[in-house]
């Protein structure tokens, strides 16, 4: 008892929640002109057909760009194929050419996939301002210091979801739902420290896959059931 009362220092009592993903929500994305394999096209021409998952990378990136694309490619495979979207991989490095980007598409074997578009643009600064993306040149090695960023754009050209960092398919699913204008009344903040989350909400299918937390929540009833069975079966019944 005394040991219990010996209060340890309470760490992590002011958790820092990352609220960066909340910026620019429902703001219009700059309608810039991009160049893809098929030629010049305005973003509005793309998103008015299908909502966009916009990914900003550059081909010489020695950092997060390749893992980001790899993770995105893997996660897309896990998403319900009925949902509509276009993944626009856009270079934010003015030095990148369309050929560089096409090479990148080939490396990831995404050049044949109709859902993926690789593009460059001369109006990248205008776009960056509208989405709150601030890559910073780092040193002489033509590298940028930048976030792994996915921007979800709905059919009206509004930013409806942002994902920062390498995220799982549930987060990506949430984005695909948001860009298709499906209202989900709540979402978790990016914070993977929590133990026993109740529900891994999979908005792509609109279903909750039970998390460890749900198991914890069903534990009392399960244990009671077992207890009742054990007591009941082991008791000597005096009745006839």
């Amino acid at each position: 008892m005394i040991l219990l009362l010996w209060a340890p220092k309470l760490y992590a009592l002011t958790p820092v929640y990352n609220l960066d993903e909340e910026t620019n929500i429902y703001q219009p994305v700059a309608d810039i002109r991009v160049t893809t394999e098929e030629g010049g096209i305005y973003l509005s021409e793309i998103y008015s057909g299908r909502p966009i998952i916009l990914t900003l990378v550059y081909t010489r990136c020695a950092g997060v760009c390749n893992p980001l694309l790899m993770r995105l490619k893997e996660n897309i495979e896990l998403i319900d194929p009925k949902r509509e979207f276009t993944i626009l991989v856009l270079s934010f490095d003015p030095l990148d050419t369309l050929e560089d980007m096409q090479g990148m598409a080939k490396r990831f074997t995404l050049d044949e996939d109709p859902r993926w578009e690789f593009a460059v643009s001369r109006e990248i600064d205008k776009l960056n301002r509208s989405i709150g993306f601030n890559p910073v040149r780092a040193g002489a090695k033509r590298q940028f210091d930048h976030e792994a960023l996915l921007i979800g754009i709905n059919r009206n050209g509004l930013i409806t979801k942002k994902l920062i960092g390498l995220r799982n398919e549930a987060a990506l699913g949430a984005m695909i739902v948001e860009i298709n204008d499906v209202f989900v009344p709540s979402y978790p903040l990016p914070d993977n420290k929590r133990s026993f989350s109740c529900f891994n909400y999979d908005p792509a299918t609109g279903k909750n896959s039970p998390g460890w937390g749900l198991l914890v929540l069903s534990l009392p009833a399960t244990l009671t059931l077992l207890l009742v069975l054990v007591i009941g079966i082991n008791s000597n019944h005096e009745h006839h």
Binding site: Y11, A12, K193, R194, S195, S197, C198, F199, V216
Partner: peptide, 12 residues
Amino acid sequence: FSSGTFVNDPLL
């Protein structure tokens, strides 16, 4: 007692 290594889910 976890000294910050175990954080609960407020929803659960």
